[in-house]
Write a protein that binds this DNA or RNA. Sequence first.
DNA 1: ACATTTTATTGACCTGGATCAATGCCGAAA
DNA 2: TTTCGGCATTGATCCAGGTCAATAAAATGT
Lengths: 249, 249
Amino acid sequence: MTQARVITPLFEDFAKVEHHHQLACQSCALYRLCLPLGLHRDDLSKLDQIIKRSAGFKRHQILFEPASTFKTIFVVRSGSFKTTISAADGREQVTSFYFPGEFIGMDAIYQQRYLSTARALEASSICELPYERLQEFSATIPELQNQLMTRLSKEMSADKNLLLSLGKKTAQEKLISFLLSLSQRFSERGYSALSFQLTMSRGDIANHLGLAIETVSRLFTQLQEQQLLTTQGKEVTILDLPALKQRCG
Amino acid sequence: MTQARVITPLFEDFAKVEHHHQLACQSCALYRLCLPLGLHRDDLSKLDQIIKRSAGFKRHQILFEPASTFKTIFVVRSGSFKTTISAADGREQVTSFYFPGEFIGMDAIYQQRYLSTARALEASSICELPYERLQEFSATIPELQNQLMTRLSKEMSADKNLLLSLGKKTAQEKLISFLLSLSQRFSERGYSALSFQLTMSRGDIANHLGLAIETVSRLFTQLQEQQLLTTQGKEVTILDLPALKQRCG
DNA sequence: ACATTTTATTGACCTGGATCAATGCCGAAA
DNA sequence: TTTCGGCATTGATCCAGGTCAATAAAATGT
């Protein structure tokens, strides 16, 4: 709870955006993490004009589903999202979590329709990038094209690392790898690397890592007993980062 | 063995390439599956000039490793490859298999170095696409840029589907899904969808699917007992495709 | 503030697939 | 054609993590 207070200010920065939908990229708190990074001033203002800043999403609200046709890549502006992919019989796999500055929906470019379902994990807002316009712009702005390819490639790298986790790691290694990846991403966003709020449920984490909820719960208990971290509900505080890094495989 | 004879002709088409390294894309047997698809005649000949057709790779030969710096995207011309990603302690996960017309190394764009190791599964050959030149060309050939993004997105889709397999499917469902994906890809390449040679070992399959070799072996036996397919060593013949599709989850 | 629902924890027990251990098979080298 | 070394198959046993069941503790709505 003490930590929640530390985190609040920046979340509020992002949240303010909801009251200024047409806030320019240049003055966005996410600038250095987001698509426009490295673009020239005038290219940026062109880009600015095609970006639609969308109104807020409520917890559990759906951003897109496999049914919907692909037109847009989404960038998280505030809050967080998860994507899930479904088997024919309804079993779901949580494929990724997305935080401010991250792109959602890039797997839809091939096939021109979304492969997964994206849902808000909390009150969140996004920017919409119309993919066709983005493509047009890319022709004249090489740096934009480069950014898009890099983003695709980055998500692919993350997916391949998750494949390694799911295929070869023990339950404890999976959870530790996951927490370290969150820690890394939070710290890139200016939050503490050692203490953060999980915006997803235990169920989401378990599903994402191919584990049962009960196993995740027991692992948290176990990691606390080993003095590696502490939890209070959704808050995680890392006590021994080096030890965790050493145990993630 | 009878089937091997059916398959041979096309493999030979691809193999001939090794004796004509500078064969133009326009006359390549893979044209309709490959990057140049949809490019105009003159754009294509420009692209042709930057592509290096490489000499043959032997079975187990390494195409690239994580140490090597990224300069090139590879396209399989004949044969097949696997990529593996390693944990700190040496455990490896086979992340993908690649067949003619498929792109290897796209996860290296972000970070500008290869994340994985790529090895030939059999005698194989490739085309090298220098990434920087490709980027330059993309600026003037929108269709090329589109093709690249689509390829990235396609591999990402495949990875997400594998995540679903690894995270939520039973051993049998994993193997069936894998075989159906191979069947699909072989048929796209003009081979039989119902009878094909596995170019990878049981060990590679097991590793890829997060299973033990013994489990894969038992599953093949089991699927044969259920009259769903037959195997003779590396050759698989699907007997009941609808039943398999129904059992893959 | 209270009731209701959802989410998390903990314990007892079970099982799918891993591991260990032979044995069989096939292809390359001589 | 024989021998050798890596693959593949099959059986016996084991265990990490799943499932089932009961609380407990948060969220959420009224």
